[in-house]
Design a protein around this nucleic acid. Structure first.
Length: 582
RNA sequence: GCGCCUAUAGCUCAACCGGAUAGAGCAACGGCCUUCUAAGCCGUAGGUUGCAGGUUCGAGUCCUGCUGGGCGCGCCA
């Protein structure tokens, strides 16, 4: 599978409008030096090397550094420091570079001229909302499936984590040039739906979960009672993908079932809407049956000779494809296991032309990964081995009053996603759920989120944006308003250390976005935004923007405008609001 | 027993295909509003990156083993 490397510095992958970024400049200089070394015979002429230029962590190492000399030490057969010296000697002069140093084992450190670093402002302002976006994906069709909750209850915090992670990955891929389809898959006709119907019917009869006649494993939550009431009142419910009017006939189990599914789908839609998550496609498991896709998949697997009958069931020999045991496809009772429609569904995705498919799921379903991939291999349909991709998020736990709130649909004790959004707000909920790596478990402490509500990490970002808007607004009201042209013509006024920090941070954004997208890790953006906001707050406290010096003031306002833009773009990637005042 | 994830400051978490002296927030302590939003800033303190080996110029990051935690191992989804 080809993925954009994103990280490697490449020439001309970004539209640059003639503005040269520091890294691009350094890359050119190093390429020159490299060619010189080769022509002098210090390096094998045919030696290819991927030049890496990193932003430094430590300012005493300059703004950018390369380990090029260390990488070249082996092929050149010379100590790294010697190569570093030769490289530095061969570097063409550039006004963009203030100083070059060799440090440590052979790192070459570059100190950028602030005026050259300030060029990023021009690019940010000319590209506006598209700054940071790229065409790495070249329009490739990507599908991301996430949430995919069955309509048997409201969404909980685990679904919320999946929802925001999937949604943000979709935003990242869209921003890096992919054509993204967001899809929600659900079962509207299986055993769980029968259970749902029985539960609602029991409520219609006035039964309580404590009654002996209550269906075994029935859903006990209060929401079932509400469905029963609305069904008997003939209510019409409208979900994103269906609309159903209740028949109010307690004996029509099909009608009860249809209504309950539509009702819960609508509830989930409302949850997702409150969370600002939208889908392009709702895919029904039942359609795989009604359109014969399940049957066709079975036939194909049988024809390929990967199946056998045993104990009255039909098995797929998934062990041929790396699974630890074979899996039942068709049960003794003639029904298929969930696994088969899963395979049929993914074959359908492949046939729809999605060369990259990402399944975002809870890690408790991780055993399906090997199984589904094995099933797809057994189809012999030309599907690559590691397809589809999976992003698995670890469990999210809700804590209130220092105690875990169990998320049991059957027991009915519940903290729903909507509860969280109502209590701590959409932006804070999204931020908490997306700001950390998906591989780590997550504790969502409601009390903490509430207690911090005045002092929340997401507000830190939004406050930075609001502050910037305020400064820019003040400038607009001023008798000598902000003149962008004057500002851009005097970027050499930006000489403060805090200003340079900000400029370097702005310049890192496009790469940061590309890296987060190719790693499918939206938390990287949250991290970046914290750093950007921090740089801005430091700058704001250390440097007065609205000075009397016309050139300096306008240059600083241009910087502010650029920072505001990047903050806005980044907040947007995470689906967070960018308030103009707080 | 097997598989996947995980272990970093008191707590919650970062750390860019392996890079230089491991960074933030919260909590603690000390400062900063007669000037652009103090939901902010500056400073102090806080670490044997679970343990033991290995790979190499260099390891929180890669490999092996061990320990602790989570999840999974249905003819449930």
């Amino acid at each position: 599978m080809s993925r954009p490397s994103g990280i490697a510095v490449r020439q001309r992958t970004q539209p640059n409008n003639g503005f040269s970024l520091m890294k691009e400049t350094l890359l050119e200089l190093l390429n020159h030096a490299l060619a010189t070394l080769k022509s002098e015979g210090l390096l094998p002429a045919d030696h290819a090397v991927d030049i890496r230029i990193d932003a430094t962590r430590d300012k005493s190492h300059g703004d950018y550094a390369t380990n090029l000399a260390l990488v070249l030490a082996k092929p050149a057969g010379k100590p790294p420091r010697e190569i570093a010296e030769a490289l530095v000697k061969a570097l063409p002069d550039s006004a963009a570079v203030e100083k070059v140093e060799i440090k440590g084992p052979g790192f070459i450190n570059f100190f950028a001229a602030t005026s050259a670093a300030a060029e990023i402002i021009k690019r940010v302002l000319s590209e506006g909302e598209t700054f940071g976006r790229s065409h790495h994906g070249q329009g490739e069709k990507v599908q991301i499936e996430f949430v995919s909750a069955n309509p048997t209850g409201p969404l909980h915090v685990g679904h919320g984590r999946g929802a925001v992670v999937g949604d943000c990955i979709a935003r990242l891929l869209d921003a890096t040039g992919y054509q993204v389809t967001k899809e929600f898959y659900y079962n509207d006709a299986g055993a769980q739906i029968v259970n749902l119907e029985r539960s609602v019917s029991a409520r219609i009869k006035g039964l309580e979960p404590s009654d002996p006649a209550w269906p075994e494993d029935g859903y006990r939550g209060e929401y079932i009672k509400e469905i029963a009431r609305d069904y008997m009142q003939g209510v019409t419910v409208r979900a994103d993908d269906r609309e159903v009017t209740a028949k109010a006939d307690p004996d029509d189990s099909k009608a009860v079932s249809d209504f309950a599914v539509a009702y819960l789908r609508r509830e989930q839609d409302l949850d997702l809407k409150a969370f600002d998550v939208k889908f392009d496609v709702y895919f029904l498991e039942s359609s795989l049956y009604s359109e014969g896709k399940v049957e066709k998949t079975v036939e194909r697997l049988v024809a390929n000779g990967h199946t056998y009958e045993a104990d009255g069931a039909l098995w797929l020999r998934t062990t041929d494809f790396g699974d630890d045991k074979d899996r039942v496809m068709r049960k003794r009772d003639g029904f298929y296991t969930y696994f088969l429609p899963d395979v049929a569904y993914h074959l359908d995705k492949w046939q729809r032309g999605f060369t990259t498919v990402i399944d975002e799921q809870g890690a408790d379903h991780h055993s399906t990964v090997t199984r589904v991939r094995a099933g797809l291999q057994a189809l012999d349909a030309g599907i690559p081995k590691g397809w589809p991709e999976y992003v698995l998020h670890q469990m999210a736990m809700v804590v209130r009053d220092g105690k875990e709130v169990k998320l049991s649909k059957r027991a009915g004790s519940y903290v729903t996603l909507r509860d969280l959004i109502d209590e701590v707000g959409r932006d804070a909920t999204r931020y908490f759920l997306v700001a950390r790596k998906v591989d780590s478990q997550l504790t969502f402490d409601i009390d903490l989120a509430l207690a911090q509500s005045n002092d929340n990490p997401v507000y830190y970002l939004q406050y930075a944006h609001a502050r910037l808007c305020s400064v820019l607004k003040r400038a607009a009201e001023n008798e000598v308003p902000f003149d962008e042209q004057i500002g851009l013509a005097h970027l050499d006024q930006l000489t403060e250390e805090r200003e340079k920090d900000l400029l370097n941070r702005l310049a890192a954004y496009p790469e940061q976005l590309a890296r987060a997208a190719s790693a499918r890790e939206p938390h990287q953006i949250a991290q970046y935004l914290q750093e950007l906001a921090s740089d801005f707050h430091s700058f704001y406290n250390a440097v007065k923007v609205m000075t009397d010096d016309e050139f300096q003031r306008n240059a600083r306002l241009a910087l502010c405008l650029a920072v505001r833009q990047v903050l806005f773009n980044g907040l947007n990637l995470l689906g967070l609001g960018a308030p103009e005042e707080m």
